[in-house]
């Protein structure tokens, strides 16, 4: 598998970011994934994935304002960069291409 392909979890994280738009910070992303997929997404896993993708130039982050509900600590908002959108599109295309023409597979053992 090419190094440039996005992993499934990375795709979930990026898609959650896109859904949330400007309000995408780790806690919201993890909740969004959990809510939509019904799978518990660990905060730490999401955070690590986001920071790793930031290192690869797939997302950019910035600190928001502090608030007392967060003990005076800021939120880190993430923004999906064009490179990531391109890879997401590739991943979706690859999957759709592979699915195309696969019928009645559920009966196959």
């Amino acid at each position: 598998m090419s190094r440039d392909t996005l992993g499934e979890f990375e795709q979930l994280v990026l898609l959650a970011c896109l859904r949330l738009g400007v309000g995408a910070y780790t806690l919201a992303v993890a909740d969004e994934i959990s809510r939509r997929t019904g799978r518990e997404a660990s905060h730490a896993a999401v955070y690590v994935a986001l920071r790793r993708m930031e290192g690869k130039g797939l997302v950019a982050s910035s600190l928001g304002d502090t608030s007392s509900a967060r003990g005076g600590r800021p939120r880190r908002f993430f923004q999906v960069l064009p490179e990531a959108k391109e890879r997401l599109r590739e991943a979706r295309d690859a999957l759709l291409t592979m699915w195309d023409g696969v019928d009645g597979w559920e009966g196959v053992t």
Partner: peptide, 30 residues
Amino acid sequence: DDVVGDLQEGWAARLDALGARAASRWYVTQ
């Protein structure tokens, strides 16, 4: 700092929704 803030916020949300025990368990695990 941002992670600590997230943990605090997530904990508070779970405290309201699920109770103190579940919120603390979440906080510790995360």
